[in-house]
């Protein structure tokens, strides 16, 4: 499956999305990322029982935080897919890039902002 997804998506691998913390998502925005999303396993299929559900609540927290300070919450999203869904992975990457592109460049002018 030689599927392509946008080159401006930087993948950071974690053993489980339960490892992703609020501060990781905030730091990405703080450092100038136009968007950040978490791709977790399908709900109900977490190897660690609830890692992906916890990740979703953290994503929601970050969305609320951004909203409070006037940054578009759509810059942060949570997606669920299984490791067997390669095509879906590419689709999600395209979807997210499109969503963020519509919003335009980040209003947070950080050190690595383009």
């Amino acid at each position: 499956m030689r599927l392509s997804y946008p080159t401006n998506v930087k993948v950071i691998q974690v053993p489980c999305t339960g490892r992703v913390d609020i501060i990781h998502l905030l730091n990405a925005i703080e450092d100038g990322a136009d968007g950040v999303y978490v791709a977790g396993c399908l709900e109900g299929e977490c190897h660690y029982i609830a890692g992906n559900l916890k990740a979703r609540r953290k994503v929601d927290y970050v969305k609320r935080t951004l909203e409070e300070i006037g940054v578009e919450p759509e810059r942060v999203e949570m997606y669920n897919l299984s490791s067997a869904q390669g095509a879906r992975f590419a689709e999600i990457a395209n979807e997210m890039v499109e969503q963020v592109a519509k919003l335009g460049p980040t209003p947070v002018k950080g050190s690595c902002a383009a």
Binding site: I22, I23, L26, V71, V108, K109
Partner: peptide, 19 residues
């Protein structure tokens, strides 16, 4: 410790946005 970092980051984001 966690909440301190989260607050600091949120404040920095807000102030960066406000240039």
């Amino acid at each position: 410790a966690k909440e301190v970092e989260v607050l600091a980051s949120a404040l920095k984001i807000a102030r960066k946005k406000a240039e």
